[in-house]
Nucleic acid binder design. Structure first.
Length: 180
DNA sequence: CGCATTTGACCTGCGC
DNA sequence: GCGCAGGTCAAATGCG
């Protein structure tokens, strides 16, 4: 992932406050990874919510819930737990945003009605089960939709500042999308 | 050598 | 019940 440094040169400082229109209902602290408001979601929650929106920097997060099975495919309890998902769209040339966490790719799937495949990533931190999906939009190839699922139970592994820089330097596309 | 990525197979849910 | 689509697993492979 080093190549992101090239795309997002870190000059640290000058990190302006981001304005997010983020309808966040972060009421899921009972999940296994939901102890702290760390990481990107925590960051997003911390960033001004509902602030003024300027043209180039607006990010719309979307909160949805999906049913996720705990216990994998093995037979046994198929406890269904509703996990919220947070999706946002960014205009970026690269698919993967370096949000400071370490992600391991575990899947890659072609999606119907989309000419771009969807990539599945899992946080590599031990015990952390946060997942994210990354997909480029068919209708606008410049837009990458990232969907986070779960919350990190550990501190960010790089600096949050980096993520803010990413946001600052991207044209963040705004639109709401509901994911089921 | 250890870790990340790739990729085909497999599983599950849902609509018909 | 069947087929499709989405999501995950895991062996193989690549790379630092």
């Amino acid at each position: 992932m080093e190549n992101f440094q090239g795309f997002f040169p870190t000059s640290s400082s000058s990190s302006t406050s981001l304005s997010l229109n983020l309808t966040s209902s972060l009421g899921y602290s009972e999940f296994e990874c939901g102890k702290d408001n760390d990481g990107i979601l925590g960051l997003m929650a911390d960033i001004k919510v509902g602030g003024a929106t300027n043209e180039n920097n607006s990010l719309v997060g979307t909160t949805t819930e999906s049913e996720v099975k705990i216990g994998k495919t093995k037979k046994g309890e198929n406890k269904k737990i509703r996990k919220p998902r947070y999706a946002f769209q960014t205009r970026s040339q690269v698919d993967i945003l370096d949000d400071g966490y370490r992600w391991r790719k575990y899947g890659h799937k072609a999606v119907k009605n989309s000419k771009f495949p969807r990539s599945y990533y899992r946080c590599t931190h031990q015990g952390c089960k946060v997942k994210k999906q990354v997909q480029r939009l068919t209708k606008d190839e410049g837009i990458v939709e990232t969907t986070y699922e779960g919350m990190h139970s550990h501190p960010i592994q790089k600096t949050n500042d980096n993520f803010e820089h990413i946001l600052n330097q991207m044209q963040i596309y705004t639109s709401f999308k509901s994911i089921i």
